[in-house]
Design a protein around this nucleic acid. Structure first.
Lengths: 197, 197
DNA sequence: GCGCCCCTACCGAGCGTTCGGGCGGGGAAC
DNA sequence: GTTCCCCGCCCGAACGCTCGGTAGGGGCGC
């Protein structure tokens, strides 16, 4: 054990992916260089290639993490059983929580636009997630629990647009994750207006 | 008049900014090359430099357009006079409309993260806009028109996060701008849940 | 002393930008 | 009306630099 200063990082694929995602989230994937990642990891650029095949592999692993986390949510029992509006409430809350918990991963995912092959696959998986939620909203609308003047697809996009936007400003501190997730659900379902009576 | 085929583009700073913003919005500022812009304009890369000083100047002009449009909104009479909640309603609706109208400009603005000097200035102006709206929300809360369990700053960020997210998926077609702007306001103030009674 | 892990040094490609020149039309000179 | 030149506009080519990625050597632990 070199007990001096170096914490002696493990430097495996996963820990390098952690570092890379933080850098990608901060500088943007295109704007971040492998040297940036290397410096953040306390290692040389060439050494990264001993562990991963390249820059895009780091992105791909990050996108996979993010999407796996999202799809895990819609597999949860509370997202599969019960009234549509309650399933929706659960999903929205859990997506917001997960976004705050896996902030770098989801920051990168939400900014991807299909430039490369792995990006295009990620966009496709996101669309599948979106379709699933849109279906639930349509169901809740049929139940009479969601106002009928809203297009389900539009509502889905706006709600997750609101939820996803936390990656643009959240920095751990002042507001707790719970507070934010609760606010997302509150606005999405009841809005900011004070209830009358 | 060369009535043949060439539409004989004007190729001034503004028209090149138009083209550049569309390219930046599609590929991302970092991901877009000056060759991409040149090709989209039907001109050579070198020729662009006859009209503008460089890539960042194109970005700066685009960010200026976007921010000017946003600040023009809070100068409108409906945003300055009357009950806070009604001023807020007006601003949210107008921001959504403006976003859809100046889509490339605001797409680029919403993705900027302060990498260069002009980006940092744009971020600062956005923050000023946000502070202004946050103040209005706080006022509406004091009036009893906004529920008290929401932090005004958080509410402001989430509402505009929802509104701004349209740049990620809107393509002129199926849904009209009015429909979208109305949905943004509807969800922000009343939420998607059906009213009881 | 063998193998894993990281280093220094380097490569070709692509970037934003610059340079010098060519082309073409409009106005002045005659 | 013809000639000539100037100047705005655009191009091909190349510069310096940084990028993602590679080659090969060295050192440390087992």
């Amino acid at each position: 054990m070199t007990a001096l200063d170096a914490p002696r990082k493990p430097y495996d694929i996963d820990s390098l992916t952690d570092v890379a995602l933080r850098v990608f989230a901060e500088r943007g994937y295109d704007g971040a260089s492998m040297d940036d990642v290397a410096r953040a990891a306390g290692i040389t650029k060439a050494s990264i290639y001993h562990h991963v095949s390249g820059k895009e592999a780091l992105l791909e692993r990050g996108l996979g993490r993010a999407l796996d986390a999202l799809f895990a949510i819609i597999e949860e029992p509370e997202a599969r059983e019960g009234r549509a509006i309650e399933r929706l409430r659960h999903i929205v809350a859990r997506v917001a929580e997960t976004t705050l918990q896996l902030l770098p991963e989801l920051t990168v995912l939400f900014r991807v636009h299909g430039a490369s092959k792995s990006e295009r696959e990620a966009v496709e998986r996101r669309r599948a997630f979106d379709r699933h939620v849109t279906e639930i909203i349509a169901g809740a609308q049929r139940d009479g629990d969601v106002r009928r003047d809203l297009d389900p697809r539009l509502a889905s996009r706006l709600i997750f647009g609101m939820s996803n936007s936390v990656v643009e400003w959240y920095r751990s501190g002042t507001l707790s994750r719970e507070t934010i997730a609760r606010a997302v659900v509150a606005i999405a379902f009841e809005g900011i207006a004070a209830r009358r009576g």
